[in-house]
Design a protein around this nucleic acid. Structure first.
Ligand SMILES: NC(=O)c1ccc[n+]([C@@H]2O[C@H](COP(=O)([O-])OP(=O)(O)OC[C@H]3O[C@@H](n4cnc5c(N)ncnc54)[C@H](O)[C@@H]3O)[C@@H](O)[C@H]2O)c1
Ligand SMILES: NC(=O)c1ccc[n+]([C@@H]2O[C@H](COP(=O)([O-])OP(=O)(O)OC[C@H]3O[C@@H](n4cnc5c(N)ncnc54)[C@H](O)[C@@H]3O)[C@@H](O)[C@H]2O)c1
Lengths: 230, 230
DNA sequence: AACCGCTTGTGAACGCCTGAACAAAGTCGC
DNA sequence: GCGACTTTGTTCAGGCGTTCACAAGCGGTT
């Protein structure tokens, strides 16, 4: 049934395909016309065999004994990832982080265009960021409807992120990228990806500690339960 | 051998532990003294059984029939994640994204303190961001040595990211958070985590397309090429 | 025209993570 | 003081992702 959609391409693979696509863009700029899986994998930071398996999901798109056509593979990846047409995005919360995103040229060059910036602060509304005017938050639904945006980016404080998310979904947005440190609840059929920078730092701190202290905390806790919390 | 370190806690679990810790902080501020796994899991956006499994890596730290002590679990998680002492971090590349990070209060409140900001632009050097002065990039090694920073954050253009990374590693930094869209090469014993916002958007675009077009591009290519879109 | 070397594409095994069901254990009520 | 309920901690099975290794195919060369 259509409910159980057989995800043919693993999501982890999709993320890597996006990386390959970026590397290919760099190679094309450098004038290269073909690449081997080993070279591509090295530039992308992955295993060559894994790269070939990733690409095999798209069907045969290389030439044995030679490698991959840079232009051909780029076109195929662009098509599969849905980047042939420019995807309109709305950005809610034009603070420090939101301004950095809105002003970033790297998104537009890859087919993502911010078509609406929204904020609730009267001092921010009306200003221009990255060549776009900031609209009042009340116009969220109108902006989504007018631009047909299908991707929403949330860079508001955590307290209002769920409310903003609900409004985005109600307005028709079905893909959301969330920078606020909260778990968003969305109905089925809506995809949320979360970027949590504090978590990234915390994982690094854990790995740091695991290296430094030759006695891992966790092992000690497991082997020696009677050590009180104190 | 010390080469094959038996990772006792899966990295995916570590990332979730950090989320639980943040939720617990919110609960503590709200005056709560205990939580059940179900409630915690709901707030963190994960499965209750999975949460209990995650916590079981730390040994028994809940009370059956009651739940978890908010204060106790928080302390335990903080200890395991290595956040007991404040971790000094250096930030290289004080542009739009770097400024947003340096100015963000959410890191300091979780034990991460930026002790050094570095940039190569003479117009940026000398200014203050988030209460800290920006140092010239040449002083990178000196700043790391003086502050004892073990975590480095890279928000420079992609072209110089590898060079900056090499200098950080040579200076003694062993954990790196990279925002530049390149795969960094580091020696063994150094951990790199990558935040790639373009990839996040591209994955969302793929999911979008997979929903919209009722015939997934990839499936058409693999299974039944003649089956048209409708 | 046939051979040889190189690279892709794929099949299978391995390990990791996730999700669900069950047993242990402690507390609250009577 | 005892029973029953609630919630944890663990065990088991399933799926997913990754890795290794090999066969198939193409180009260049003689
Ligand atoms: N800045 C960082 O480095 C950083 C790092 C990690 C996480 N985050 C998270 O990203 C989010 C934004 O961070 P920031 O530093 O840019 O904060 P910020 O305060 O600078 O910006 C938030 C913006 O959202 C706007 N806003 C508030 N309520 C709104 C609403 N209802 N509708 C529309 N806009 C609204 C505010 O006016 C403000 O401009 C926060 O959730 C923060 O936790 C930021
Ligand atoms: N801004 C975004 O929203 C965004 C989104 C995704 C990825 N990124 C990536 O993050 C990185 C930074 O983005 P940004 O928008 O802040 O760019 P930016 O140009 O605003 O900032 C880069 C800063 O790095 C400094 N710098 C350059 N070379 C340096 C060196 N050798 N040593 C120290 N500092 C140096 C520059 O002076 C500048 O201040 C880029 O790699 C970009 O691709 C940014």
């Amino acid at each position: 049934m259509s409910e159980s959609r057989p995800r043919i391409v693993p999501e982890a693979t999709v993320a890597r395909l996006a990386v390959y696509l970026r590397v290919l863009a760099g190679l094309a700029d450098g004038g290269r016309s073909s690449v081997s899986s080993g070279e591509l994998a090295s530039a992308a930071g992955v295993n060559p065999a894994g790269l070939r398996k990733d690409l095999s999901y798209l069907g045969p798109c290389g030439v044995r004994g030679v490698g991959y056509s840079v232009a051909g593979l780029r076109e195929r990846l662009t098509e599969v990832l849905g980047g042939e047409r420019s995807r309109p995005c709305v950005l809610v919360g034009i603070g420090r982080l939101g301004s950095a995103l809105a002003d970033y040229a790297g998104f537009a060059s890859r087919g993502f265009q911010f078509v609406g910036l929204l904020d609730s602060d009267p001092r921010t509304v009306g200003t221009e960021v990255g060549g776009l005017p900031v609209h009042p938050a009340e116009e969220l639904e109108a902006v989504v409807a007018r631009t047909g945006a299908t991707i929403g980016v949330i860079t508001t404080p955590a307290e209002v992120a769920q409310t903003v998310c609900d409004r985005l979904v109600a307005a028709g947005v079905r893909s959301i990228l969330n920078f606020a440190p909260v778990a968003l609840t969305v109905p089925a059929g809506v995809d949320v990806r979360k970027v949590d920078l504090s978590v990234e730092l915390q994982v690094l701190a854990f790995l740091d500690q695991q290296r430094d202290g030759s006695a891992p905390v966790v092992a000690a806790l497991r082997a020696d339960p009677q050590e009180s919390v104190r």
